[in-house]
Amino acid sequence: MAEKHLVVDGAMCMCNYGTSPDTLKVKTHKREYANDKDGSTKYIASNKDIGQTFQKNCFGSCSMQRNKPCNAVVTEWKGFYEHTTLTNGGKILLEDSKATCPIGGAGCIKIVKHGQIAEPGSQNFKSAEPKVSKTLNPAVDPRELTEEPISIEGIIFE
C-alpha cells in the first residue's frame, strides 16, 4: 500500500464511457474514518460500496448507450487493499482501484481524486526545514509556530 492514498467519501470518479465525473458516497458503514489529522472527517470507501453509490449516479451521457444518460451502477471493485478488513467486512479502496459497471464492463470506472485533503498539524511545522518553510511562505516566521514562548513571569529584575 506504500505511496497510495485510501479512497474516502467524496472521491471523484469517472467512467471511460461517460462525459462527466461523479462523487463517490460511502453508504455501507459509519465507523471508520480517514482524511484529517485527527482521523474523523470522511468515511473510508470499501469494495462493499456497490450498487448506486454515487451522488448523482450519472457520468453524463454514455457512449456505450448511444449517448443516452448514464445510470451508474457498480457491480464490483478490483484493486483494493487486501490486508485490512473494515467493520462492514469490506476491503479498503485505493486510488488506483477500478469498478465494474454492467454496461461499460470491467474496470470502466476509475478514481480521479481519492477525496482526502492534506491538513498539516503542528508536528509538520516542527519537522519542516525552516529555510523551505520561509521560502514557501515568506510572510510567516516558522519559529513563531514551533517554539514555545518564553515567559518572564516570576523573574525578578533588579
Rank of each mutant, 00 (worst) to 15 (best):
L6S: 12
Y43G: 01
L145M: 14
T53V: 15
I111V: 14
Y33I: 02
G18Y: 03
P102T: 04
G60N: 07
N57I: 04
E144H: 08
Q65E: 14
S122P: 10
Q52R: 08
I92K: 05
E119T: 14
G60L: 06
S151E: 09
D22Y: 10
A45K: 01
S122V: 11
M64F: 05
A72G: 04
C13E: 03
K30V: 14
V7T: 05
T135R: 10
T19N: 04
Q116P: 03
S20K: 11
K56F: 10
H114N: 13
T41S: 14
F125P: 06
T41F: 10
R31K: 11
Q123C: 15
A139H: 08
S63C: 12
F54L: 11
C15M: 03
P21E: 07
M64W: 01
D36I: 05
L136P: 02
T23Q: 06
S40Y: 09
M14F: 13
H83E: 10
E32I: 10
N88F: 02
S122F: 09
L86I: 04
H29W: 03
C15A: 04
Q52D: 00
K68Y: 05
K110D: 09
Y81G: 05
P21R: 04
A106R: 13
N47D: 15
D36L: 03
K91W: 05
P130M: 06
I109A: 00
K131H: 15
H83G: 08
G51M: 03
L136N: 13
A106E: 15
I50M: 00
G79A: 01
L136M: 15
G79R: 02
A11C: 02
V7P: 07
D141A: 08
E95W: 04
K78S: 10
T23D: 01
K48E: 10
L86R: 00
G90K: 07
H29E: 13
C13T: 15
E95K: 09
K131W: 11
C58F: 01
A106K: 15
K30I: 13
G18D: 01
Y33T: 08
C101F: 03
A106M: 14
A11G: 04
T28E: 13
G89M: 03
K48F: 06
C108E: 09
G90N: 05
I44T: 06
M64Q: 15
N71T: 08
A118E: 12
I155G: 01
T19H: 00
G18K: 01
Q116M: 11
N16Y: 12
T41L: 13
P69A: 02
K4T: 04
S151D: 11
E76D: 10
T146E: 04
G79K: 02
Q52E: 08
Q116N: 08
L6P: 09
I92C: 13
F125C: 12
C62F: 02
S46V: 01
C108L: 04
P138T: 02
K126H: 11
K4P: 00
K78G: 06
A128W: 12
V112T: 15
K4M: 07
A99L: 00
C108D: 09
E3H: 11
D49W: 05
A139N: 09
I92G: 09
V74L: 01
C62G: 02
H114D: 14
N124L: 10
L136K: 12
P21Q: 05
A72N: 03
M1C: 12
W77P: 08
A34C: 07
N16E: 15
Y17M: 07
Y81P: 07
I152D: 11
M1I: 14
A45N: 01
